[in-house]
Simulated scan of single mutants.
Amino acid sequence: MGPRERRFQRQFDALERMVPVLRGPMSTLRRDSWFPIRFPLALILIAGGFFAFMPVLGVWMLPLGLLLLAVDLPILRGPISVLMIRCRRRGRALLRRWRNR
C-alpha cells in the first residue's frame, strides 16, 4: 500500500469519526465484494449532484459519489483525499469562527 492509498484510507477513517452514522455503511461499501453495487451507486450519486435544483437531490451527492468512485479508481484517490483534507480544514476554520462570535 503506497502513501496515496494510506492517506486515502486515513481520510475515510476521519470521515467515519466525524460522522459516526456513516461508519457502518461506508465500511460495508468499501469492501471489494460490493463493487457491483458501489460503482453504479457512485455514478448515480454524481449524476444526482448535477440536479441540485431539485428538492431531494443536491450538491451533497456529488462529493459522496466521487468518494465512492475513488475507491475503485486509483487515479482519483490522490485528488479526492486532498479535497477531503481541504474541506475538513475549511470546515474546522468555519466552525471556530462561528463559535468565536
Rank of each mutant, 00 (worst) to 15 (best):
M1R: 12
R4C: 05
R6F: 07
R6W: 04
R7D: 07
F8Q: 06
R10C: 10
R10D: 09
R10N: 11
Q11T: 04
F12M: 06
F12K: 04
D13H: 11
D13G: 12
D13Q: 14
D13P: 13
A14V: 07
L15P: 12
L15H: 08
E16A: 11
E16V: 10
R17M: 02
M18Y: 00
V19W: 08
V21A: 14
V21D: 10
L22K: 00
L22F: 06
G24L: 13
P25S: 06
S27P: 12
S27C: 13
S27Y: 13
S27Q: 14
L29Q: 08
D32Q: 12
W34E: 11
W34M: 14
F35Q: 15
R38I: 15
F39W: 14
L41K: 10
L41Q: 05
L41A: 11
A42N: 06
I44V: 15
A47S: 14
G49P: 10
F50Q: 00
F50V: 15
F50Y: 07
A52I: 00
P55N: 12
L57H: 01
L57T: 08
G58T: 01
G58Q: 08
V59N: 07
M61R: 00
M61N: 09
L62K: 09
L62V: 01
P63Q: 03
P63F: 02
P63A: 07
L64P: 08
G65P: 11
L66C: 06
L67Y: 06
A70N: 04
V71C: 03
V71T: 09
D72T: 04
L76D: 04
L76W: 04
R77K: 10
P79Q: 00
I80K: 00
M84S: 00
M84Y: 01
R86W: 03
C87T: 09
C87D: 01
R88L: 03
R88F: 10
R88E: 08
R88T: 04
R88C: 00
R89V: 06
R89C: 00
G91H: 01
A93I: 06
A93Y: 03
L94N: 00
L95T: 13
R97W: 11
R99F: 10
N100R: 15
N100T: 15
N100I: 13
N100V: 11
